[in-house]
Every structure is written in structure tokens, then in C-alpha cells.
Simulated scan of single mutants.
Amino acid sequence: MSRLPLRIVFAGTPEFSVPCLEACRASGAEVVAVYTQPDRPAGRGRKLTPSPVKAAAAADGLPVEQPESLKSAEVQQTLAAYRADLMVVVAYGLILPRKVLALPRLGCWNVHASLLPRWRGAAPIQRAILAGDAESGVDLMQMEAGLDTGPVLLERRTPIAPHDTGGSLHDRLSQLGADVLAEGLQRVLAGETLAARTQSEEGVTYAHKLDKSEAQLDFARPATALERQVRAFDPWPVAEGSIAGEALRIWAAEAIDMPHTGTPGSVLAASREGIDLACGQGVLRVTAVQRAGGKRITAADYLNARPELRGSR
């Protein structure tokens, strides 16, 4: 007698989740429904816009559910009616109540973009760069009621390169997440029970949600910390700082280990290579900026508009 296909409910919202949805579809399992956040206003016209996961699900002709919450009995009944064997959750953005966690026969899996227990929570990718971590990765986790506290089923690691941004690390981890999920599904479909590793109680850190107020650069801090801030906040919320009195978004910069006697934030030098700003320790060489109402430009192009800064000491 042939086995029925694994029935999956997928829950995710942003672009990060889309490769994992595709991995579910490619696994041979049956995706019976996709849960994603309600359409939100976006763009200059604040037009209601579907999430990237909803767009991908619609393109594949999959049923889409968009509840504001999973707490009501009615919503839980709708979910239960899909008779899922497994629920796969990837950056969904809603809390799963205990009753929801218990609905699928195999429970709920989560693809999380960190090496747990480090960086549980909402913004693990950016927090890892901000902290200067040497590596990151993705964990396939069996979900439980706590915030990212469940046992780890599978893990993939990747070094954080010196020039990685929040965007580049996001894209790499998104694909790694799809890879580790695909492996987990393949093994379960083959009849295997994945071994679960309980998370250590040591080394627990929390990746709190990013706030736009964190974007402001404090030049009294070391240049190395500011460089990480610039990289972590690309593409959002983008670091901000003043250069010779003008408030700018700082898109790219590098830390230089150079002694100086300048006041933090003052321009030490400016050339085609970049604009050197004094920091509490070392120098931050800014190489790409954005003026108010403008687009991202190189430091060289910015200096064409402010030639008085060239060669300043």
C-alpha cells in the first residue's frame, strides 16, 4: 500500500521565506495551505501590497490564509481542517499558540537564521554582524512554546565575510535555510525520524527587533563598531551621520586603524577613495552616501558637489 504524501502547511511572510516555500513544493510533499501576514500598505502611495510569500503562493495556485492572529478558535478550526502532518514556519511574524503547535501530527518546524541559542528573536542576521560574529548559519528547529527555544534538528553554518552586509548575509542564509529544510523533508519522507539536539542553556542571546533610531552613527565610538553598524543596516534601516554639517545616509564605509587627534565626526581627509572621519578610536572612511531626496552615490561623486572638502586635514 503506497503512503499518502506528507501534508504541509507553510507559514511565512518576507522574501527570506520564499526559497523555503519552494523547497517544500520541490520535496514531493503536498503544500495544502500557505499562511502569511495580511496585506500591508507599502510604497509612496501606501497601497495595500501582498507579502512576497503570498505572491509566490498565488503564482503556484496554493490556498492562502491571512489571519491577523492565530489565537481565535475559528482561525484554529480553519487550520485544523487542512489536516497537516507538519507546519513549516519561516519568518512568519505571528506567535503560534500551544494549540496550534499541537495540531500537526509531526508538530511545527521553524527555519531560524542563527546558530542557536545565540540570537534568538527577530533580527538575528543584523545582530550577528553588529556584534562582530565570525560566523552565522541556519537551524531547523522543532518549535515549542518558548521564543526560539526548541530542540535543533539540523544546522548549516557560514562564515561572516569582512564585507558582508545585512542584505548579502540575508540572501545567503535564505538559501541555506531552504537547503537545510529540503534535507529535513527528504529524510522524513524517507521514513527517518530526525534526532533533536536540546539547546544549551549557555550562550543565550536575544536579537531584538531593529529600530530606526539605531541607525544614527556615534563617532565617539570605535571605527570598527561603526563599520559593522553600516554593514548591518544595509539595506535597512541604513546608517545615518553628518559630514561637515550635512546629514546623510551612510551606505558603505571601512574602518582604518589610524591614530589621529581630530574631534569625533570631523573630516580628516577627503579624496576619490573616500571621506575619512575621526572616531573615538581609528578612522571611518565613508565610500558611499545618500543626500536627502537623492540616490546612493559614491564618495567621489559627493565630493564633486562639495569640493571644499577635498584634501582637508
Rank of each mutant, 00 (worst) to 15 (best):
T78M: 06
Q37V: 02
G241A: 04
F16T: 11
A128S: 06
E144N: 13
M1C: 08
T263K: 13
D234Q: 10
Q142D: 15
P237E: 06
D148Y: 09
A113D: 00
L176M: 05
P159F: 08
P52S: 03
G294I: 07
R172L: 15
V9M: 00
G245M: 12
I125S: 02
E254D: 06
A113L: 14
R105Q: 02
A225K: 12
R249C: 10
V289A: 02
A215I: 00
R231D: 13
E246R: 15
D133V: 01
A239R: 00
M258K: 11
K47Y: 08
V64H: 01
E201W: 09
K99I: 15
L4K: 14
V18G: 04
P117I: 12
S69E: 06
R221H: 10
L4P: 10
T36N: 03
L96D: 01
K71A: 10
I95N: 01
V286L: 05
H163W: 14
Q76A: 13
S17V: 04
A182C: 09
N304Y: 01
A252D: 13
T193P: 03
A278H: 05
A84K: 08
S242T: 14
V75Y: 04
A102W: 14
G280D: 06
L116K: 11
R25D: 15
A269D: 14
E65F: 10
G184H: 02
L140Q: 01
D276H: 06
R306W: 10
W236V: 07
L154S: 08
V32C: 08
Q216Y: 11
G241V: 07
E202D: 13
S69I: 08
E192M: 15
L181K: 02
Y82K: 07
M87S: 03
Q229A: 13
V100P: 00
A305H: 13
R313S: 12
A305Y: 11
I256W: 12
V289C: 01
A292H: 15
T36Q: 12
L96R: 02
S174C: 05
H208F: 10
P162W: 14
L79M: 07
V283D: 02
L101I: 05
L277W: 07
P41S: 12
G150L: 04
V100T: 03
S51R: 01
R3I: 07
I250G: 07
R98D: 06
A26G: 09
A55I: 15
Y92D: 07
P151A: 14
E135H: 06
Q281M: 13
V286W: 05
R306K: 12
